[in-house]
Design a protein around this nucleic acid. Structure first.
Lengths: 223, 223
DNA sequence: TGCATATATTAACACTGTTAATTATATTTG
DNA sequence: CAAATATAATTAACAGTGTTAATATATGCA
């Protein structure tokens, strides 16, 4: 029965779409079985014919949001000069995506969705979320030897963890209290992890896409 | 009326104690007004005579847990040789505290408790949680110039954020999947932030409390 | 069309936080 | 000490939550 599969996929799509809209709009706190079903135009119990529980449904949105996030990042950093500067811009854009959609941050890093053991694919997407959003930039930096290959994994890990922490404190604990202060700290954090000196060149480089800049090698922790 | 104040404080204490027990035991998911009231030996509505809502009550536990955490850290690191080694051990102990009590981690860094604007004291305790748990170690390292003073704030920030992220991924996303792997990553993270080279001395140093070791100065990002 | 199957819906259950009304308990006053 | 009052604790109720079982509706097939 091919029709059945098509219809089932369509139905799932309706619920997933509804869930995504609520998550991006009112956020995770507004997620409920009845809310989602309303938005999808069905009764709340119908949902259980297609998903085993509400977590199952909610976490299916992760893939779509990761795609959207990567688009968001590349859109926001298109004009940046390649190299460390663009890597830094991508990380900042990644941060801004989750500030714009706090519900998606909760979904990715906060909410405990019960039995994760069965969904290694989703866990993998989440764990590699930042790395994938900056994939091209890392490759570029490696290719041009702007970052020692031996350090990349350490740096990626440091960035992955510290940016989750930074966002957690800001979104969950209002620390720091203002957005501009938050962006300042984010910038400082990225700079200090990547070993970028606060420099006037940082402000000029946006309009200077000719050369690849800021080699990291000279300022990295030595082996 | 002095008696009234004493009695009120006592009553609050009963509920706070009950909340702490549940948080340390079954965790935050088991927290409910009726649950807490049961544990305290009162009816659920009685709770509202002493706390404006359940968040108000739950977040009053933060202070106690921070104290307990600092004790936990100093107990676990008493035998470590002072200096970078002890600082590192303290950070690891801090991590272990929250792995032992995931509910307290949720309370500190995850749960959104509504109107935080009115509780800057609690926010402050949370924001400075790690720094305070390692306060003496930082002071020692600074005093003996094991870490350049100019770098301390950056390093503290990096550690603060990345350890929250590390714990989030492990406790919320089971990444990595095993405890030993997690501890490995935690160790690597601390080492790479503090600039400690993986070294045999790390394993020997536990029984060598004679000297202060591992000066950071020579391996720090240069100014 | 009539029947069988699959799908959608309503009803119900056990929870949640919170408030209002009610009962029980202390305290103060005559 | 007894009665009136104030205070504290309790139960009842409401509007939510996720989930399941029973019922109603629509679909596909002979």
């Amino acid at each position: 029965m091919k029709n059945k599969e098509i219809q089932e996929k369509r139905m799932k799509g309706y619920f997933i779409q509804a869930t995504k809209e609520i998550l991006k709009g009112e956020g995770l706190k507004a997620i409920s079985v009845r809310n989602i079903a309303d938005q999808a135009g069905y009764s709340y119990a119908t949902l259980y014919n297609y998903f085993k529980d509400i977590n199952d449904l909610v976490f299916l949105c992760v893939n779509d949001f990761q795609e959207e996030c990567e688009l968001f990042v590349s859109d926001l950093t298109n004009n940046e000069p390649k190299g460390i500067t663009k890597l830094k811009a991508s990380i900042l854009a990644y941060i801004k995506y989750f500030v714009e959609y706090p519900g998606i941050f909760e979904l990715f890093y906060i909410t405990r969705g019960g039995d994760f053991g069965n969904k290694p694919q989703i866990i993998s997407v989440i764990s590699n979320s930042l790395d994938n959003a900056c994939k091209k930039d890392w490759e570029c930096c490696l290719k041009h030897k702007l970052i020692p290959e031996a350090d990349t994994e350490k740096l990626k890990a440091q960035l992955r963890y510290s940016i989750i922490g930074l966002l957690s404190l800001y979104l969950n604990r209002l620390t720091p209290a203002t957005y501009s202060e938050f962006i300042d700290r984010a910038t400082m954090l990225i700079d200090s992890v990547l070993g970028i000196k606060p420099d006037i060149r940082d402000h000029l480089s946006k309009n200077d896409a000719s050369t690849i800049q800021n080699s990291l090698i000279s300022v990295t922790i030595k082996k």
